[in-house]
Amino acid sequence: MRPFQYDRARTLTDAVQITQGEDAMAIAGGTNLLDLMKLQVETPGKLADINRVGLGEIADTDGGGLRIGALATNTATAVHPRVRADYPVLSRAILAGATQQLRNKATTGGNLCQRTRCYYFMNIDQPCNKREPGSGCGALDGIAKLHAVLGASGECIATYPGDMAVALSALDASVEITGSDGMERTIPVRDFHCLPGDTPWRDNVLEPGEIITAVTLPAPVGGTQLYRKVRERSSYAFALVSVAAIVEMQDGVFTRADLSFGGLAHKPWHDPRIAQALVGNAPSAQLFDRAADILLEEAQGHGENDFKIPLARRTLHAVLEQASENAA
């Protein structure tokens, strides 16, 4: 860990002020940032501890939705009565991630900003365009088991590793952001993370000095909500593939099918064409295959991760089968 100046922010204005400047970063739970700082993947010169700026609240919104403060811990969110009752896919996704110890520290904002687990990104003695632009992508011809099959580029095939954001994407939640000038903006979670393209160092749309203040969930949509995570251990492992699903049926046909996918891309993957294909149709293996065809239309393996393509198809089948049974 490089030496850094540590400041404790007491208010949001404080926090935004302290995190100005090239090498300043905000720290909340610290579960990802300190991990990376020890490896010197992250080397902030200034660290703003924002834990005490009062963004931990989880509160109802006027429109019947729920506003989850950026500093609400993953645990606080997952066990919140309204999340359990109205947004079970979010509880399930959080509970499928990490461990209780980590969830007790990890925060909403930090989790959205979680960086990739690509082996080459995390090893500063290996090439990585995300960590060191222009150094090359170590994973491309290396070990790429964890890596992306959708939306990758020749510069970077890393995946976004989180679970919570996959559920937030399915729920079509929004991210509230405050900038250095006090300007606030809100963007859909589905647009928060970036694809690597030729700017792989950019994980998301946050501009320097911007801080996430909350995530807002729309009014409850009900339906059957599932989070399915496939991993190499039965717990405490990152997703090979995950699916967040919100499904409703009426008279034997899908009336809602909001699906997002983890483990496949540099961002939680959401393709609105999948819902279009499913809605109005009765569940069948052929229909599920059609949905998978849409999802995987552009899928591209890199050898070691080729299996993710059939695995995504089969996991989608499993989820749709279960969801349609539950919803029927």
């Binding site: 540590y6 404790r8 300190l34 991990d35 645990t75 209780q100 110890q101 980590l102 007790n104």
Partner: peptide, 18 residues
């Protein structure tokens, strides 16, 4: 693992100063 304010956490991933 230690217990901080009643919650178990990984003490390696948090700074004493926090």
């Amino acid at each position: 693992t230690v217990i901080v304010n009643g919650m178990r956490i990984n003490s390696c991933l948090t700074l004493a100063a926090m």
